[in-house]
Design a protein around this nucleic acid. Structure first.
Length: 441
DNA sequence: TCTGGGGTCCTAGGACCC
DNA sequence: TCTGGGGTCCTAGGACCC
């Protein structure tokens, strides 16, 4: 048995924890750069606001309905997430943190100990709310895909009562009847693993609900839904587990690639300004790399212009380098990045976005050496590792950006055009001494 | 004027091996 | 008309997720 615990409207809920006056009022949270709507409270959903909708297109509507608008505050959401996940780690033998706002629990072999699973789910739900202020829904089923589906039904269910399925944000699909009823209620496009493309194919072939998909012949699934992925999907809906737990290690899971990319607040045209952004992104990515104890073999840099509208035609270029020996050294990576940026650079272009990606990650300190690597390079990297450790320690202790590399510094004048717009960011209530919650008595 | 960011897995096809 | 069989590794691109 798997449980999927998913936070309701997570970012909006985080904002509400520290601003209780927003309770009952529609709330939306915007993406970086105040670009799109990426989280909505139930009241905001009821207004017809959609996920991913560009902010500027609905600004007036938001004003008319007195919607509270928040810029995204990932420091806050990340910290709230840690609190929720810590608790979930206490109530099940195995935890997989699937995303910032949801986690799978493995309840195999626990059902006897846990007793009635619906009661267990209700207890988890109540405890998370009490301890963190975050409302969650709990779906339980014999497979991960069904647990996701149960969660989805449970969420809808907390508003509309169902005939035989229990309400109140918790749903356990432990009998075939319940599974069938839940499958019949979910549109095929809402099944985990079915995106735009597959949904269109499925509709064209006459599949409308999750129940239809569960009855789909496996060869058809294999041919039309991405091969083995589609077959697993169908089998999971039938109740045969094909996806196992991928338990999260303490201190977060080791990623297989790390990226840092941003749209700019305003278009940027000068090489050194874009380089400032790229160097900043490299620094952040390398810091993440070191935090998880990895080193990267492949570094990619990309730049692009505005992808909307049609004049001038959009320009996107990327370049990558495979290093002779995987590195976690900001200075080395930044020097490579400068070179790569030079390769993709086109003068007189209005750049709107840039990013860096690190791939081919290896365990730091155990990198594969090149055949012709000189011993000198290794001893230099020893000193550099010490330098990086000091850099990270200073930034941890005195705050982000206390010590940066020279190329990441901002040029006087228009140099900070690439910085994000975040006009309505809430304070980092839980992670910055200077921004603690103030209570006026 | 204004349209996010960060991931994973899988497949197909080419180059290469014996 | 006939022209082997069985692999590996790598990359690009597509699909999905939140």
């Amino acid at each position: 048995m798997f449980a999927l615990v998913d936070c309701n409207n997570f970012y909006a809920s985080c904002e509400r924890v520290f601003r209780p006056e927003l309770e009952g009022r529609p709330v939306v949270v915007l993406s970086n750069n105040d670009g799109c709507i990426i989280a909505r409270s139930n009241e905001a959903k009821a207004l017809g606001l959609k996920m991913g909708e560009p902010y500027f297109q609905v600004k007036e509507l938001l004003r008319q309905h007195d919607v509270a608008v928040c810029s995204s505050n990932y420091e806050l959401y990340g910290d709230m997430s840690r609190r929720v996940m810590w608790y979930l780690g206490q109530v099940a033998p195995e935890l997989e943190v699937y995303s910032i706002d949801e986690a799978f629990l493995n309840l195999s072999g626990m059902t006897r100990y846990l007793g009635d699973l619906t009661e267990y789910g209700a207890r988890v739900r109540a405890d998370v709310l009490q301890r963190t202020g975050i409302p969650v829904c709990v779906g339980m089923a014999p497979t991960k895909t069904l647990a996701k589906l149960a969660n989805r039904v449970a969420k809808a269910n907390s508003k509309v009562a169902m005939s035989t399925l229990a309400g109140s944000g918790v749903l356990c699909l432990d009998t075939d009847d319940k599974r069938q009823e839940a499958l019949a209620r979910v549109g095929v496009e809402d099944v985990w693993g079915v995106g735009h493309q597959y949904a269109a194919k499925l509709y064209a072939a006459g599949y409308r609900t999750a129940a239809d998909l569960a009855a789909c012949p496996l060869p058809w699934a294999r041919k039309n839904l991405g091969g083995v992925v589609g077959m697993r999907l169908v089998r999971e809906l039938q109740g045969y587990p094909c996806l196992s737990m991928e338990p999260s290690e303490d201190g977060g899971q080791a990623r297989k690639s790390i990226a840092c990319t941003r749209s700019f607040g305003k278009p940027v045209t000068e090489f050194e300004d874009v380089m400032g952004a790229v160097a900043t992104f490299v620094s952040r990515a390398a810091e993440k790399l070191r935090r998880q104890g990895s080193a990267a073999r492949v570094l990619t840099v990309f730049v692009s212009t505005n992808r909307y509208g049609n004049e001038p035609p959009p320009y996107t270029r990327s370049a990558l380098v495979t290093l002779p020996v995987a590195s976690d050294d900001t200075l080395e990576l930044a020097a490579q990045a400068r070179h790569l940026l030079g390769k993709v650079w086109r003068p007189g272009t209005l750049y709107k976005k840039a990013g860096v990606m690190l791939d081919g990650l290896e365990r730091a300190g155990q990198q594969q050496l090149g055949l012709f690597e000189q011993p000198a390079a290794v001893s230099v990297s020893g000193k550099r590792a010490e330098l990086m450790g000091t850099l990270d320690a200073l930034n941890r202790r005195f705050g982000k950006g206390t010590v940066i590399i020279g190329s990441a510094s901002v040029r006087k004048g228009a140099g900070a055009d690439w910085a994000m717009n975040r006009e309505q960011k809430s304070p980092a209530y839980t992670t910055s001494w200077g921004e603690l919650w103030r209570i006026n008595l």
